[in-house]
Structures are given as structure tokens and as C-alpha cells.
């Protein structure tokens, strides 16, 4: 936490933390507390008067079927992104851990989607699945699938899941590969001498030994899917068709900036903040535990 020895206290440390604290107060603490305050207000239709209503905004939200559906959809979306992306990454890392030659080259070629902005990832996928031009609808047509994510909500959901998972493979791959490479060679060799073949070794040793990483990545992927996929959804579907791809973050934005429902949007923000804090706490508890091992 603190060095055994330190410099004597003076004005200097205050000056050093001042920029960070100033920005934190102005752009984080103040807006966040504004969000909390606004979540207790209801504005009339003309924006002329506001009323302090305690938790009414929250009550309205939890009685709102659209909001509850959004909540459920967000969880489904996150789970789908995490499972798809992590299982792809796990398989690729498992094989990359095996190969001796070309491992670095494979890594280089697998990691760069990380650098692609979410909205760009969305643009790429929406182009590939463009109902009239895209390469995939053209192929799918041969097997009798009529692809149009502008009309079909399930197809729209599938598309945002693909795009989101694609972008996250790189990240998951790097962490899985690092975890596998840190397994002591002798453990795997001992297993091989005990007669465990490659698949058995993966199932009985490698997978359990990387389980801390799996848990860590689950949290990270959930946070990613909850908050950082805004650009993908904005580019691919704008939450449509008929809200079928509206997730919580997208709804906060939509209700606040498009629908101008300040109180409702603020209440949603507050709920999201609570979610983020909960996830961060889980993540930190986990990191602490990992350090103790």
C-alpha cells in the first residue's frame, strides 16, 4: 500500500493529485450525483416544472414491460457474446499452445480485431450481411435462409452477437494463451507419462487450471457486452427492429438523448452504475484471490 520510507508531507503531494482529483470531481462525481438526483425527479411533458418523486422513476421502470424485456435481452446478449467469444478463444489458444513453429505469427494474426473500434466492427459485419449485397445473405440464400436483419429481430440479434463476439476473441485469446503458457510444463509432462492423451490432458488439466482465467474473462466479457457494445448496436441495428436489439446502455442513450425522458434515463443510469459497481467489486475480489494463490 505504502512504501516503508516516504517523503515528508508538504504541499507537493496535494499539487500532484490535484489534476486527477479536479477532473474526477468535475466529470465523474458531479455528473454521477446529478444522475442520482435527476432519477428522483419527474419533468412534465413541456419541461416547465419538475417534481421530486423519490423512487417513482424506479418503480415505473420495474413495472415497465419494455424495460424488463430490455434487461432480460441484455443478459441474453451478454451471455451469448461471452460464450461464443470465449469458447472460440479457448479452442484457438489450446491449439496455439501446442504448436511450436509459428506461434508468434498466429498470435499476431489473431489479436488485431482488438484494435478495431466497435462501431467499425459493426460496419464491417453489417456490410457482410447486407441483405441485397452482402456475401453471407448470398450464401445463405442457397440453403434456403432468407436473411434480412432489418426485418427479422432474431437475425438482428444474431448479427450483433457475431460482431461483438468477433471483436472480443482477440482479448480472450491472449488471456487464455497466457494462462496456458504459465502452466508448468512438468504438470503436463507428468500427465502424459501417466498416459493421458492430448484431449484428456486438455479436459483434465489445462481446462481446470485455466479456470481462474475463465472466471475473470466472464466478468470482463459481461462488462464489455453491457457497456462497450454501444457502437456495434448503433451501427448495425439502432436497437431495432422493434427494439429487438435494444440493450440497457442503448436504451439509456435513446431515452435520454432521443426520447428526452430525463428522469427515466437518469434512473436507468443509476441502475447501470449499481451494476457496474457490483461487477467491479466481483472482479476485484477475484483479482485479490488470484494474487493470494
Amino acid at each position: 500500500m505504502l512504501k516503508r520510507v516516504h517523503f515528508p508531507s508538504s504541499l507537493l503531494p496535494y499539487l500532484l493529485v490535484a489534476p486527477q482529483i479536479a477532473i474526477t470531481l468535475v466529470f465523474f462525481i458531479w455528473p454521477a450525483s446529478q444522475a442520482v438526483y435527476q432519477s428522483f425527479l419527474i419533468e412534465d411533458a413541456f419541461g416547465l416544472s419538475t417534481e421530486f418523486v423519490w423512487f417513482e422513476n424506479f418503480e415505473l421502470l420495474f413495472e415497465d414491460d419494455i424495460y424488463l424485456a430490455t434487461f432480460g435481452r441484455t443478459i441474453f446478449f451478454s451471455a451469448a457474446v461471452a460464450i461464443l467469444s470465449m469458447s472460440m478463444a479457448l479452442i484457438l489458444a489450446g491449439f496455439a499452445d501446442r504448436v511450436v513453429r509459428g506461434a508468434t505469427a498466429y498470435r499476431t494474426l489473431l489479436i488485431w480485431p482488438y484494435a478495431v473500434a466497435p462501431v467499425l466492427a459493426g460496419a464491417l459485419w453489417v456490410f457482410m450481411f447486407n441483405p441485397t449485397l452482402g456475401i453471407f445473405p448470398y450464401i445463405l440464400d442457397f440453403v434456403g435462409v432468407d436473411w434480412n436483419h432489418y426485418l427479422n429481430g432474431n437475425q438482428a440479434m444474431a448479427l450483433v452477437v457475431f460482431a461483438s463476439a468477433w471483436k472480443q476473441i482477440a482479448y480472450n485469446f491472449l488471456f487464455y494463451l497466457a494462462a496456458m503458457q504459465s502452466i508448468p510444463r512438468s504438470v503436463i509432462e507428468a500427465a502424459a507419462i501417466d498416459g493421458a492423451g492430448p484431449i484428456r490432458r486438455f479436459k483434465d488439466f489445462i481446462f481446470p487450471l485455466v479456470s481462474p482465467t475463465t472466471f475473470f474473462l466472464l466478468v470482463i466479457n459481461a462488462v464489455y457486452a453491457f457497456f462497450e457494445t454501444f457502437g456495434i448496436i448503433h451501427a448495425v441495428t439502432q436497437g431495432g427492429p422493434a427494439n429487438s436489439t435494444t440493450i440497457l446502455v442503448y436504451k439509456v442513450f435513446n431515452d435520454g438523448f432521443v426520447g428526452l425522458d430525463l428522469g427515466g434515463s437518469a434512473a436507468q443510469s443509476v441502475i447501470l452504475m449499481v451494476l457496474v459497481i457490483a461487477m467491479t467489486v466481483v472482479q476485484f475480489r477475484f483479482v485479490e484471490r488470484r494474487v493470494q494463490y
Binding site: 465523474f28 458531479w30 455528473p31 454521477a32 446529478q34 444522475a35 435527476q38 457497456f227 462497450e228 454501444f230 446502455v249 439509456v252 442513450f253 435520454g256 438523448f257 430525463l262 434515463s265 437518469a266 443510469s269 447501470l272 452504475m273 457496474v276 459497481i277 467491479t280
Partner: peptide, 10 residues
């Protein structure tokens, strides 16, 4: 704990 997306409006 607070990504910009959740406190975007204020």
C-alpha cells in the same frame, strides 16, 4: 467503476 456510457447525459 463508472464508464462514460452510464453517466453520459449529466
Amino acid at each position: 467503476m463508472l464508464p462514460v456510457e452510464v453517466r453520459i447525459l449529466p
